[in-house]
Design a protein around this nucleic acid. Structure first.
Lengths: 134, 134
DNA sequence: TAAAACCATATAGTCACTATAAGGTCAATA
DNA sequence: TATTGACCTTATAGTGACTATATGGTTTTA
């Protein structure tokens, strides 16, 4: 299978596939005589793994770490669970941050309506004066 | 006032101040004979405005747009409100995405405990098998 | 046979900084 | 006086995860 078919089958761009290879996330495949990359089912699985991790917004470094664990099947899996726990913590903290942000934005928005001149705009005023509760 | 004092007074790095100048967000200040930048109160206000916008996670492009509006004080301010509404929409949609993500991660995490071998790790298994509900 | 679709590499751009290198300026101290 | 330290300058590269572009070779299809 060539790079286009691999990419389509997993739903990424061919550029992204080459990028993952450069980053060491996807093993370099064999080449045809013309230099074209030839992929196997193993590559499809490996790329699909990366894609699923990315959908969960794991970083490439975290995916790398997971791949390293896969090469030591008889080690305890605590590190994997920890990695996921840390990621969950990260996601939750980002949600909290954004919820605070949303409140601030909504409150700022409430300080104006559409029928003013820019000079009197409550939003611009709120951004200009320092009465923001950090 | 020199760049260090300006930066400290607003809580950013001097590099960031120069970066904003290059990006056209902060007007180029006068220079001393030795080439040092000299800032005024106006610059402090301008930088503080940028900083407050950044705390609300407005992009530099959006901040630029707001600054353009400021130069036309008698135009109606609807565009400003719209910019903020769009940003609120963006933040809300990101929150929703992350909440979905969190559920998926927690469910994945529940499929394992710390006492297994990597080979049998529920988390790794969940990432490897394609039974993810997108 | 020619066009379309595919493949290759290399390089630059995105965003908002942050880090590093290499050097000039200035005031206070040894 | 020399030197240390804190400041300032510019230029360039790195971050993360791609995405876009340029340039050219190969294969497939009409």
């Amino acid at each position: 299978m060539r790079i286009g078919q691999l990419a389509r089958s997993v739903g990424v761009d061919t550029q992204t596939v080459r990028f993952y290879e450069r980053e060491g996330l996807l093993p370099p495949p064999d080449r045809q005589d013309n230099g074209y990359r030839v992929y196997t089912e193993r590559h499809v699985e490996r790329l699909a793994f990366i894609r699923r991790c990315r959908i969960l917004e794991l970083s490439l470094a975290e995916i790398h770490e997971l791949q390293r664990y896969q090469t030591a099947p008889h080690q305890p899996c605590r590190a994997i669970n920890t990695l996921l726990d840390d990621h969950i913590t990260h996601v939750r903290s980002r949600i909290t941050d954004l919820q605070v942000l949303e409140k601030q934005l909504v409150s700022l928005r409430a300080s104006c309506n559409d029928d003013r001149e820019i000079e009197a705009c409550g939003v611009l005023d709120g951004l200009s004066e320092g009465n923001m509760q950090q």
